[in-house]
Nucleic acid binder design. Sequence first.
DNA 1: AATTCGCCCTGTCGGC
DNA 2: TGCCGACAGGGCGAAT
Length: 309
Amino acid sequence: MVGKVTVVYPVDPMPELPEVETVRRGLEVRLVGEVVGSVEVRQPGILEACQVQDLQGLAGFRVSAIDRRAKYLLIRLEREAEARSLVVHLGMTGQLTYQADQEEATDTFRRLVSGYQKSVGAHKIDSHTHLVATFLSGARLMFRDPRRFGRILLIQACEEDDCPRLARLGPDAWKADPLALKRRWIERGGKRTVKAILLDQSIFGGVGNIYADEACFEARIRPQRILSSLSSARIDVLAKAVGLVLDKGVQNAGTSFRDFVGADGESGTNQEDLRVYGRGGQLCFRCGGVLHKAVVAQRTTVWCAKCQT
DNA sequence: AATTCGCCCTGTCGGC
DNA sequence: TGCCGACAGGGCGAAT
């Protein structure tokens, strides 16, 4: 028996495509059809290109759909002939949770499950809760983000192409045709590293630090390899690996080290399936070699020097 | 033109 | 034990 085991809980990096998709699915089930009663902005600093009054003016709008583009959530709102999109980026620690009624348990319940903190239920309103939308049904949608890297924008539904953040995004990386990934990587990647290309949201959107490293491990390619130095066949493998790790992330309802929760406050389980992210210095599950850690493309990067070439 | 840097922000952790 | 600096990190604008 081991005496005392120190478990390190890394802070979740930015929610990436699978995490945002998990929130989208949760909100789609619960939020569509709800009519906004009032919106309280508790921290105006999270707003971008819109004012507190604009959000307060959403009273009477009905939620018609929840869409996602890369790591952005788009909450579609309609009132008579008007249509708006509430655009939400979760930053690093953002949580967008739904509460059916205010009598429901109002505190997050955390417990340890397989070495990680498991979160259940919407968090109570605290100093990190920056926006609370209350619906006519009594339900609430809350945006909570301790590190405040998240952003909320409100745009006219028809102005999506004029929103610089959205206009910059390339196609969605999830469910993209592997041949399309390959073609665009080669066209737009120049002489950059695989890691830099995977993280570049204007080439394909949705992949962040976790899934970039996991895809490289899956494809047995070093993240610092220059893409143009890879054979055509190996780029094909990488393209399939990206699809695979994103699929798995979505199936597992996202990666939760600490902060990430879905719309109902539930943690994901993908952290249990990670092969390299957060494992620098530990042993490779595939070959037993020591996993290396270094900064590549300005991000902490982990790879196996033995089986990734 | 392509790439890098500094900033935003706060909880957590290691060192003293 | 407690204080404090270092660190983490996506996206954006400025600088190189």
